[in-house]
């Protein structure tokens, strides 16, 4: 997978965290796990010149803190309000990533986010891991994208 595709997604995530949450984000070199089992795993599909999935894995503490920042309210459990807010954040990041990819002449559409309900979720085989560390905790992106011939 080309580095510019990963960077388009990374840039979008970094921008959205900054704009929406006032939270700084950097790539993390410590890889502890791919997906969370106590938080929220939300996936989105890309179709077009590139096709595949991006799985966002938010550990519980990061998820709660993100929605606390947005709402100004204390959050203590991952309920449908929180999952829905996070799904929209994922939708926004991927929409912005699709815009960033146009710079490389790659046009993609995204599908609505889906929440993985599996108690033992797994990332796709051969996906690339993009671990992020933010001021409010870790977020893991598992990216699997294939180029389609035009």
């Amino acid at each position: 997978m080309k580095a510019e595709y990963i960077n388009s997604i990374y840039q979008a995530a970094q921008d959205v965290f900054k704009i929406m949450l006032d939270v700084g984000t950097q790539k993390d070199d410590v890889i502890t796990h791919e997906v969370t089992d106590d938080g929220a795993n939300i996936t989105i599909k890309l179709q077009g010149d590139l096709s595949g999935t991006i799985l966002f894995s938010f550990p519980k503490e990061t998820a709660l803190e993100m929605v606390k920042i947005m709402s100004g309210m204390e959050m203590d459990k991952l309920d449908s309000f929180i999952i829905s807010a996070l799904s929209e954040v994922v939708n926004i990041i991927c929409g912005n990533a699709a815009t960033n990819l146009q710079k490389y002449n790659k046009h993609v559409d995204i599908t609505p986010p889906e929440v993985l309900e599996d108690p033992a979720p797994k990332a796709a085989d051969n996906c690339e891991l993009l671990p992020l560390k933010t001021d409010i905790g870790a977020v893991k992106l598992n990216i699997k994208l294939d180029e389609n011939d035009k």
Binding site: D15, V16, I19, M20, S80, I82, S84, A85, L86, S87
Partner: peptide, 21 residues
């Protein structure tokens, strides 16, 4: 109730991104 909770979560994130971004 669950549907209204989901709508509220989406509305929250949508509005912040729309106005702040």
């Amino acid at each position: 109730e669950d549907l209204v909770q989901r709508f509220s979560g989406k509305l929250l994130a949508w509005l912040i991104n729309h106005v702040a971004g």
